[in-house]
Design a protein around this nucleic acid. Structure first.
Lengths: 216, 216
DNA sequence: GAACGGCTTGACCGCCCGGTCAAGTAGTGG
DNA sequence: CCACTACTTGACCGGGCGGTCAAGCCGTTC
């Protein structure tokens, strides 16, 4: 496994932990459900209509609730998007972990991580489209940069392990991981914009490409 | 040359030509200047602040003119963006044509076209960032799809010519052109988001990659 | 059944946005 | 100097947006 278990994102950061953060709400089962509905519906609408053109009223009307509901679960519209981004990252990493944990060989884990990444992208085109938007506005881009750093670190740990095991010739693990991220990222974008489904063939080629690039 | 001269974009389309279009204004030299200033300033602000967060007032205040000026030159804020997209495409294609016209060999022209494309991208990161946004909202995306089609056709003409000359083995010219477009597009995006300048080395590799992919 | 806290409602608010327009000013051709 | 048109101004407008809040509902707990 690449990180400590659970959903921790950073074991240690710079100085303080999260700066602000009003006490996170205590939700009942019903509450968590509503929240999820909001998240999902918003993701869909944002991705098909654009973030700014979609108003908070559109969202609450869409699922047939009052406006106050929105602001019970999220402090602001921007925060909702940030939350979508955050949870998507969590979910993607969770998929990777689940798919990797079957193996011990770090190179094999690397492969499964790449596969999981591509598969996740293929099944979440709406999120990917939203991410494309998010790169174009600073507060969101900031969150994405952080996510990218985290994922590259995840990968780098694997690459380093493989180097220590002599499976990959020694080198700059971070650089290699960045390259892999570049490939999966771009492939992922294809699913966001294009209309081709994920064929096993494409998947295999992408994996081979990355692995070949890493092992030399 | 790949197309008839000048800035024509389509020699013939479907049924009618442009549907609407209020009589395009007759501008004096001073007018063309102002228009250009608006276009340039807006491009910059849109790309660094985001399209929606940048208001028309921001733009006119930024260059120190009244709001009416904006609406003298552009029918709406959306149209301004569409115009930026349109003119960028025109400019890119102009660069390509200029750089290609020195050669007769279609394969060499293809190479120069790719080079020109990459160079143009490297020197217009702000436009590329705007384009990233534009893909996320339908009316703008529509314009981008049209632009892509045009550029792929440009390339396909060259590829076909090269096939006829026996420089490339016969095949689906459009598909190959689409692949090339994929490469230049993604490379371009690096300049929009990343911070690395365009090295001659990267340029050469990209060109070699495309050409190699095409000639087999 | 009272009391409590999670949850919901929707009228309401202030702001600012895109867009308009009546009134000019500046350049230019006769 | 006039007339004409290209251009400029900025107060103004209607509307929709993100966000608030007093009030009420509902399920649990004791």
């Amino acid at each position: 496994m690449s990180t400590t278990d659970g959903d921790s994102e950073t074991s240690k950061g710079g100085g303080k932990n999260d700066a602000s953060a009003p006490p996170p709400r205590q939700l009942t089962a019903r509450g968590r459900d509503r929240r999820k509905k909001l998240l999902d519906f918003a993701t869909q609408r944002f991705s098909e209509n654009g973030f700014h053109p979609t108003s908070v009223s559109d969202i609450v009307d869409g699922i047939g609730v009052g406006k106050g509901v929105f602001y019970w679960y999220f402090p602001s519209k921007d925060d909702l998007l940030l939350e979508i981004l955050r949870e998507s990252l969590l979910d993607l990493r969770r998929s990777q972990r689940a798919q990797m944990k079957v193996y011990d060989d770090p190179l094999r884990q690397l492969e499964e991580g790449i596969r999981a990444s591509l598969q996740w992208s293929a099944s979440h085109p709406d999120v990917l489209r939203l991410v494309m938007f998010a790169w174009t506005e600073e507060p969101f881009a900031k969150s994405l940069r952080r996510g990218r750093r985290i994922m590259i670190q995840d990968t780098a740990k694997l690459v380093s392990a493989a180097m220590e095991d002599g499976l990959i010739k020694p080198g700059d693990a971070t650089m290699l991981s960045t390259a892999i991220r570049g490939v999966t990222d771009e492939l992922g974008r294809q699913y966001a914009v294009g209309d081709n489904p994920l064929s096993a063939e494409v998947l295999d080629n992408a994996v081979r490409f990355c692995l070949y690039g890493v092992t030399g």
